[in-house]
Design a protein around this nucleic acid. Structure first.
Lengths: 128, 128
DNA sequence: TGAGTAACTCATAAATTTCATAGTTACTTG
DNA sequence: CAAGTAACTATGAAATTTATGAGTTACTCA
């Protein structure tokens, strides 16, 4: 569950980056939002195979707390809430792309890992 | 402790990258080896404040299993073992640098995080 | 009237990662 | 002859991350 981590003292830029977009689901959410631009909660969940509500909701809160994702809520019933990347969020996309390019360059040498098609979602940054 | 993870099926390039250099210590080890080039076990541990032998040894094995770090052992007593980055390992350095640059660009807006001096080691990639 | 919907929250529980402490080997130096 | 050294391993515990399954609200449509 989401716990508003009380000012964890991160002084290392590497650590800060990996905290903000590392972990199991964060980069994937950024990835999907980069492709689709705006998604409501339920659509986002459909794009992410095997994520549960508890984990998705909590991860979104962390991403919002770090200023990566923006949330807009419409007061309708049933509720409608839309998520998109902030400018800060968009600025991490090139980093994720460079990670994908790097992986693409090395997976040939590493037969254990067959890259290119993710089982979590269909949106990968192409490594070309 | 190091468990030789039996062919975890990673098909996503993002996941692969974050698995290889994400986590608490991996990027830091890469970072220190990039700066010092060659280090023996004990020197490496001295550079990483607060790491324990169990964690360092196990992390090094993972980095070796992924082809990031190379190990050379001299049959002397007391033992001497030297670690350095492989070519693959060197190739992740630019990614880590881009993460640091990104963090540098955003920490001003995020008063909660004061970046630049890490408490784990003194080797950060300068963000300029 | 009753089921369905969207976007969650809550309380646990399981899994994974990290840590702390002690022990090992075969020497060298005081 | 005892203590120190380097590079670890082993074991179990603690901390952190991720997952499970049910419950909530205020409607709408059949």
């Amino acid at each position: 569950m989401y716990k508003p981590k009380l000012a964890k003292d991160i002084r290392c830029p590497l650590e800060y980056g990996l905290e903000v977009f590392g972990g199991k689901w964060k980069s994937r959410i950024i990835c999907v939002l980069a492709e689709k631009e705006v998604l409501r909660y339920s659509s986002l969940r459909k794009e992410m195979t095997n994520i549960t509500d508890a984990v998705l909701a909590s991860t979104l809160k962390e991403l919002m707390a770090d200023g990566i994702v923006q949330r807009q809520q419409f007061n309708e019933i049933p509720p409608r809430v839309e998520y998109c990347l902030s400018d800060k969020g968009k600025s991490v996309v090139p980093i994720l792309q460079s990670i994908c390019r790097w992986s693409g360059a090395y997976h040939k040498e590493d037969s254990q890992h067959i890259l290119s098609q993710c089982q979590k979602c269909d949106y990968n940054f192409k490594a070309e």
